[in-house]
Design a protein around this nucleic acid. Structure first.
Length: 512
RNA sequence: GGGCCGUUAGCUCAGUCGGUAGAGCAGCUGACUCUUAAUCAGCGGGUCGGAGGUUCGAGUCCUCCACGGCUCACCA
């Protein structure tokens, strides 16, 4: 269903939600911390946050939560894990197995903590539920009892919706084996409502009785609706994989109504974010771009904008190379801000400090300054950028530097050489004459345009037939490569004395 | 096989209650011999995937078809 876009998607979703007449509202998100939480996962939380924002604007009572699924079992040894350590932890809850780096309290915490701090930077404030705490505190005991009692109804729903046969021994509850610590190979043998316990046997030979308070977990398709009923959740965004017919939303909605006697949340499905040329991001494949890393290269508002400007059900193909520059400049260029004002506002553009220097330009300046932030300010000021807020410029320059290191195409990179590059000695006589004469003609305070004109004038005087050779001479003298940023402006940005001295030196240097 | 998304200028995409198509880039022309996705001015360019239907009128709504992408054990 392609709906006509007469307003921003979040406003439209808000309309639909209000039409349901439910409330107060709770928007729930949740991501399993089984691996690095990446920009694709972030779509879930940002989508939720934008809807949250719009509902609040309208005066609706609404809260936003994030359920950290840290009680999920480890499914397999992912490529980024040490098999020797982790193969024995398969099937155990993520909250109960060791941290990959040793610096966090658990495997789950290792991935969760950086993500939660990234959310703070994105100004997304969520009420965090930890799944292990939900279970251990007994919060879900009523739902566990309902699920165990409604086992047959659940089995029927799963069978009808998915066509999958449910094993006779199947149970919606997976006890954690007291012997081996795994929850993936246990069988429920009975339960006591009164004692809130479950009896089990395990393929490892273990058997026993566990508490419903943290002794096990509902299986995913039941866990989800249990949460909806318990919290209760009225709105939930989820990936398109759950939205398919017979998928976990469909079965969850039925289970929620029939077994937990509660209405399912309003669904907001979203598409995946793929990395340009690298396919979908998959935690299990390890080809992810963590939110944390992303925030080193993009200010939070810009990262939000990437997601907010696109309708949830449309795929985003993210290219962190050159197109990232355009994305950045949509925030610092007043002219382009008229493009999608609503999306910019919801992305938090009003919290963004424009510095008045195009990002792609800053990328050049930063390199001319040899990554020295103080020098960046000096260069900008020398070239008629007022720089009213040096701190903001330095911060942005930091993004430029990290972008250059991580994602910039090679042909945009250069570095001003401290000493005359060896390649400059290979310049021919005409090129050297050109450089010498240029050295004599430059005056302090010349603008980029003036120098640009001067280059042509002198090239002509020296009798060069191709101006390309003149440009090459300049680049070889300063960068040791045949190409570089626009020459006139480039020289204007550098210190006058340094430029003159280098030109003289290169002009004299003959091939060995 | 089911579901979802897409198919509009060479490319990337916008198209607001349906009122006979827009932007950026590329291209062409000119400006200063032009180079860092150079800059400025101007210009051209589209049977809106196909076929039906509703309508005075359809890129826009309905039906069917084609092609492409994704998804349907866990995964955002």
């Amino acid at each position: 269903m392609v709906h006509v876009r007469d307003k921003h998607w979040a406003d439209e979703i808000a309309d639909e939600i209000l039409a349901t007449g439910r409330g107060p509202h709770e928007i729930s998100t949740g991501i399993s911390p089984s691996g690095e939480i990446h920009i694709g996962n972030l779509r879930e939380v940002i989508t939720a946050d934008v809807v949250h924002q719009v509902l609040k604007e309208r005066g609706i009572e609404v809260t936003l939560d994030y359920v950290a699924d840290n009680f999920d079992p480890l499914r397999k040894v992912y490529p980024f894990l040490d098999a020797a350590v982790y193969s024995s932890h398969i099937g155990k809850p993520l909250s109960e197995i060791p941290c990959p780096c040793g610096g966090h309290s658990s495997y789950a915490a290792h991935f969760l903590e950086p993500f939660l701090s990234s959310l703070e930077r994105l100004r997304i404030h969520v009420k965090v539920y930890y799944a292990d705490q939900m279970y251990k505190s007994g919060m879900l005991v009523p739902q566990i009892v309902q699920a165990l009692r409604g086992r047959d109804a659940i089995a029927r729903i799963l069978h009808e919706c998915t066509g999958r046969k449910v094993e006779p021994e199947w149970s919606p509850f997976n006890p954690i084996c007291g012997t081996c610590g795994r929850m993936t190979d246990t069988l429920v043998k009975g339960f006591s409502e009164k004692a809130a316990t479950v009896d089990y046997t395990c393929s490892c030979g273990g058997r026993g009785t566990v508490s419903m308070k943290g002794g096990g977990k509902l299986t995913w398709r039941v866990d989800w609706p249990a949460r909806w009923a318990r919290i209760p959740v009225t709105i939930e965004p989820f990936g398109k994989d759950h939205a398919t017919r017979g998928g976990s939303y469909d079965t969850g909605a039925l289970i929620c109504r029939e077994v937990f006697k509660a209405p399912p949340p309003f669904p907001v499905t979203y598409e995946w974010i793929s990395f340009k040329g690298m396919g979908d991001m998959k935690k299990s494949k390890g080809n992810v771009l963590s939110v944390h890393r992303m925030l080193e290269v993009l200010p939070p508002e810009v990262l939000r904008y990437l997601i907010v400007k696109t309708q949830p059900m449309r795929a985003i193909s993210f290219d962190p190379g050159l197109p990232l520059l355009s994305l950045m400049d949509e925030f610092d260029d007043a002219a382009s801000q008229s493009r999608d004002p609503r999306a910019l506002k919801l992305a938090g553009a009003d919290q963004f400090t424009p510095i008045g220097v195009p990002f792609r330009h800053l990328v050049n300046v930063v390199q001319m300054a040899d990554f020295d932030l103080e020098q960046v300010i000096v260069i900008l000021r020398r070239n008629k950028y007022p720089v009213p807020d040096p701190a903001a410029v330095k911060e942005r320059a930091g993004y430029a530097i990290r972008w250059l290191r991580e994602f910039a195409p090679d042909d945009l990179k250069f570095s001003v050489q401290r000493a005359l590059p060896p390649a400059a000695r290979a310049l021919d006589a005409a090129q050297r004459a050109f450089l010498s004469r240029l050295a004599g003609s430059l005056r302090p305070g010349m603008s980029g345009e003036e120098i640009h004109a001067l280059i042509y004038e002198i090239a002509k005087q020296v009798g060069m037939e191709k101006t390309t050779a003149a440009f090459e001479a300049i680049y070889q003298a300063f960068l040791g490569q045949p190409k570089g940023p626009r020459a006139g402006w480039f020289l204007a940005f550098l210190e006058h004395d340094f430029v003159v001295e280098r030109l003289r030196e290169a002009g004299k240097a003959a091939a060995a």
